[in-house]
Design a protein around this nucleic acid. Structure first.
Lengths: 340, 340
DNA sequence: AGGATATTTTAAAGCGCTTTGGTTAGACTG
DNA sequence: CAGTCTAACCAAAGCGCTTTAAAATATCCT
């Protein structure tokens, strides 16, 4: 069933039927009801391909997921996207997902822009000095960054948490508990967020005159295996850490394994603080959460980011939108005073 | 730059330019090169909205991810989709992602079909007696099921692993090692795959005359927390299990936590076998993998499923395609003989 | 050379919507 | 009652491609 058939059926013009369905005012209320009823009856839905061509809008948002050979799909992206999709479906948009090896990224964005398959994109996991921001500004394609690039001083829309502050506070807590050898198990520091978190960690140590020890900073893709090997290595050192600060729950799972394997008990023998993105498959809640954590819902961030992007698409000339989320430190059972 | 502008620029008709770019034979090779060069120079890409209307094909595949309030985005879906997207991008297709609460599922599929926004869909996580299969058959929308619905005897395309066999073998191994109290930590048994795995587990126990004990079977959403509580509960029972069979790596992380908390050592005190989907963030490999596991790459399954679907879209009248993947049992360090 | 055939190019008709720029009929004004 | 408004509807153009049917040009053969 297409528009022509429906309007023939009703003895009305396509114009009137289209307007009736799209709630234009210049159609008689009685007619409108008649049209809507018939549309439901025949299960008529306007063909999106035609609508999109006619309106010049894709009604679609693109998410280009950065990927490399070992890190394929970070669970954090999944949760972010789940949040975003809430906003899209509420506002009649669809979500186009593309996986991109880093060396394909530019051509993917260029293609997306010139083919007109989306009205805007979300930039995931911004790097330090990220080329995507510049590219999209140049291509004039609306976008929102999940995170920021602190090395880019231009105006663009983003939503981010206060990474430096969160990790400063977390480190401070460990220091206050008496810890001196605190191991940072961080994400890859080509990524802006990881850079900021290290900054917070280093700042806290320096403020305390302890100073940061490069041997206690791990940076890299944060999966279970790498979390494990980072922690196992650190624990094998002569001056082993008594506390860990881990950038993700998933990484902390590996850290937890290494700690147990070393025969130590989390909370009593050794302290752990994580950043908790509140993934649904890795919940860290309850009265006393398993891990002491800085906490910020990535799903919520996804929903907000998507909403911001749709606002920008609706009115592309407004000033960039930004939102800074808080990541409060919540005490769980994984931290305790330094054991003498 | 659109087709008209490009063809004016070249002094050719739109027809010839379109054909040159789409590699139709009836265009002079010299002309084709000239056109392609110009297209590259002006960064011309055909507008997908127009192409799709003209061809009547969406060049898009839909993935509708089942979701409920607690389980938002299973990392397994992410990995599957990453695999699928390889196939799509190779063959010029795009991937439309939708999250669906179970009660919205039917209307989402109906909408997708009648709006024509996709050429086919992948069904994720089929349930026992799954309504989606019937619906899509009725809607005549091409689809491939990741998994099967054993209660549905009609012909449809699927890719699946041999769940019953894998869990039969895994259980058999534990029995051969002397274990009698084997706890099954399974996914939700509304899902077909979980039902089959339990079948394999029960069959192996019955073949051994041990018989299955309902108190040792957990079934539910398999996240870290539920894996933990299932295992913790089981270990607290009077006749505590000496071995666990866990349906996913993520669930096993919770089981691992409970075992450690009980002061037991995996491999020596207690055995664990998991099903390993080979998620990139949860690798279980190396010379001696952490976990003994039945193993099947879900990423690979995604790529194959997508390929099958595109084949079906290209030729919708062929017989349904099916593929049964093997999930071989690989010995790791998490299994050992029953401790006397 | 000149018709027949093969190759290359083109004009124009869709694809199924939205939207512009009307027209028509009835209501209202003075 | 002519003239003006307004409410309700419609014909047709246009979105940017692909594809059909036909025209123009090149190549071949006797």
């Amino acid at each position: 069933m297409n528009l022509k058939q429906l309007s023939d059926q009703l003895g009305l013009s396509q114009t009137t039927v289209s307007r009736a369905l799209n709630n234009y005012p210049e159609v008689n209320e009685h007619t409108r009801q008649r049209v809507k009823l018939a549309a439901r009856e025949y299960n008529y839905h306007p063909n999106t391909r035609a609508t999109r061509l006619a309106t010049g809008r894709a009604m679609t948002v693109g998410h280009v997921i950065p990927m490399n050979s070992t890190e394929v799909f970070n669970p954090i992206f999944g949760e972010f996207i789940a949040g975003a999709s809430q906003a899209y479906s509420r506002r009649g948009y669809e979500l186009l997902l593309t996986m991109a090896d880093e060396d394909m990224e530019e051509s993917i964005y260029r293609g997306i822009a010139s083919k007109g398959s989306v009205d805007g994109v979300i930039i995931h996991a911004p790097r330090v000095n990220d080329s995507r921001i510049k590219l999209l500004q140049q291509l004039q394609l609306p976008f929102v960054v999940h995170g920021r690039d602190h090395s880019n001083t231009s105006d663009y829309s983003w939503i981010d948490m206060n990474n430096r502050r969160a990790f400063y506070q977390a480190t401070k807590l460990l220091i206050d508990l008496g810890h001196k050898n605190i191991c940072l198990v961080n994400g890859s520091e080509t990524l802006n967020f990881a850079r900021r978190r290290r900054q917070g960690y280093v700042d806290a140590l320096c403020d305390d005159q302890t100073g940061a020890n490069p041997d206690l900073m791990y940076s890299g893709d944060l999966n279970e295996a790498n979390g494990y090997s980072a922690a196992a290595t650190a624990l094998g050192q002569s001056d082993a850490p008594t506390a860990f600060l881990v950038s993700s729950y998933v990484g902390a799972l590996g850290v937890r394994r290494a700690i147990h394997e070393a025969g130590l008990e989390i909370g009593s023998d050794i302290s752990v603080i994580i950043h908790d993105d509140e993934l649904s498959y890795f919940q860290n809640d309850g009265d006393i959460p398993q891990f002491t954590a800085t906490r910020s819902s990535v799903r919520d961030a996804g929903e907000r980011a998507a909403g911001m992007l749709l606002d920008i698409i609706d009115d592309p000339n407004q000033a960039p939108l930004t939102e800074l989320l808080d990541a409060p430190l919540t005490i769980g059972s994984s931290t305790g005073p330094l054991k003498k």
